[in-house]
Design a protein around this nucleic acid. Structure first.
Lengths: 106, 106
DNA sequence: CCGATTGTTCAAGTATTATCGAACCATGAC
DNA sequence: GTCATGGTTCGATAATACTTGAACAATCGG
């Protein structure tokens, strides 16, 4: 009885730069990443901005971030904890996340 | 009689981070940016990789880069010189271009 | 077990992007 | 002027991506 509570994550070595850039190129996703910069959050907690966002939409945004290797999504009781894969990304794309998070968007 | 040889470029202050990230998120466009890192090129010269690329396609790729504020495209005789807006981008998004260009893509 | 909570996945509709031939435009060479 | 060159724009089609409701899954509390 296949329980699939654990979602697939790419190994950091097989994460493509263009996929990372693409995932970050959407304002809603970038905002989520910014929120996660301060530490892990549950799905319910993140997306504080955008409160009216349907959960299926949020789940999909997160999927793109996860598949791009930017975020980790782990089961935690009946919720899910989402966290930035910051150290891993720094190792593979040094400075990238810092410059994106440091940018004052306009 | 409206001569439109001069293409529109966004002022650097009104360039959006997400637009920059999006423009860089395409492998063909990223490759062009990498080529331009060594100095300006004419349209004909860049896209050395991808030699079979139709000119209309290349022109469109360049348009996306230009409209994102990444590249400058200026008339120069009967050709066009394309150059990276590196200093400007560094000023607005410090470290971003460096980290993207420095990344060993996979 | 039952119900409420927290999410994910599916499917369908919509919207955005990519691709590329054909037409067009400016320039330089002659 | 005429022609070739280098490049942009237009228009149509194909391919991706976004959004969302509805169905489903897993867990916790009582």
């Amino acid at each position: 009885m296949t329980t699939i509570t654990r979602l697939p994550h790419p190994a950091i070595e097989e994460v493509a730069l263009t996929d990372v850039l693409f995932a970050l190129s959407d304002p809603a996703r970038l905002e989520i990443v910014r929120e996660l910069a301060d530490g892990p959050l549950s799905m319910a907690e993140c997306g504080a901005t955008n409160p009216a966002l349907p959960k299926s939409t949020k789940s999909h945004l997160m999927k793109v971030l996860r598949e791009a290797g930017i975020v980790r999504n782990e089961p935690d009781g009946r919720r899910r904890t989402v966290s930035l894969r910051r150290d891993e990304l720094d190792a593979v794309f040094p400075g990238l996340l810092d410059s994106v998070l440091g940018a004052t968007d306009r």
